[in-house]
Amino acid sequence: MRKVVVYELVSLDGVAEEPDDFITDWDDAMDAHLAAVIASQDAVILGRRSYDEWAGFWPGSEIEPFATFINAVPKHVVTSAPLDRAWGNATAVTGDPVEFVRDLKARSGGDIGLHASISVAQTLLAAGLVDELRLVIAPRVAGPGRRLLEGMPPIGLALIESEISPTGHLLLDYRVVR
Rank of each mutant, 00 (worst) to 15 (best):
G56R: 14
L125Y: 11
P97S: 10
G156S: 04
I160F: 03
T123S: 06
W87L: 08
L129Q: 03
V78Q: 06
L159C: 12
S162T: 09
L46Q: 03
Q41K: 04
V78P: 02
A90H: 06
T91D: 03
V15C: 08
D21Y: 05
I23Y: 02
E99W: 02
F100W: 11
I23K: 01
L149M: 10
V93M: 02
I160M: 11
E99D: 11
A32T: 15
D25K: 14
S61V: 04
D96R: 04
W58D: 03
E62V: 12
G60W: 10
F57E: 14
L170V: 04
D28W: 07
Y174I: 04
D27H: 12
L9P: 00
N89H: 15
R107A: 11
L9D: 02
S165C: 11
V93E: 00
R107N: 09
A72F: 12
I164G: 12
Q41R: 03
S165Y: 11
A126G: 06
V130Y: 05
A39M: 05
G56M: 10
I23F: 07
R175T: 11
R178T: 13
M1F: 05
F66V: 11
S80H: 13
P74K: 04
L114P: 05
G88P: 09
L104N: 03
E53R: 12
D27E: 14
A142V: 12
L157N: 01
Y7D: 02
S108M: 01
D21P: 00
G151S: 14
H76D: 03
M30K: 07
I63R: 15
L83N: 09
I137N: 00
P82M: 02
A67N: 13
W87N: 10
T91E: 05
Q41A: 11
W54C: 14
G60P: 01
H33V: 00
A36N: 05
V136T: 05
S80W: 05
L149P: 00
L157D: 01
A67I: 12
I63A: 15
I118Y: 06
H169V: 03
K75W: 06
E163P: 04
V101W: 09
L12K: 02
N89P: 13
P19I: 14
V77F: 09
P153A: 06
V101S: 10
G110V: 03
A106S: 11
K75V: 05
E163H: 14
F22T: 07
R102P: 11
I137G: 00
M152F: 10
H76K: 08
E17L: 06
R134M: 10
D25Q: 15
I155M: 10
T68H: 10
A55E: 10
K3Q: 15
P166L: 12
A92L: 04
I23W: 01
A121S: 15
E99Q: 09
S80F: 03
I70R: 02
D52I: 04
P59V: 13
D42W: 09
Y51F: 15
D173H: 07
D103M: 05
M30S: 06
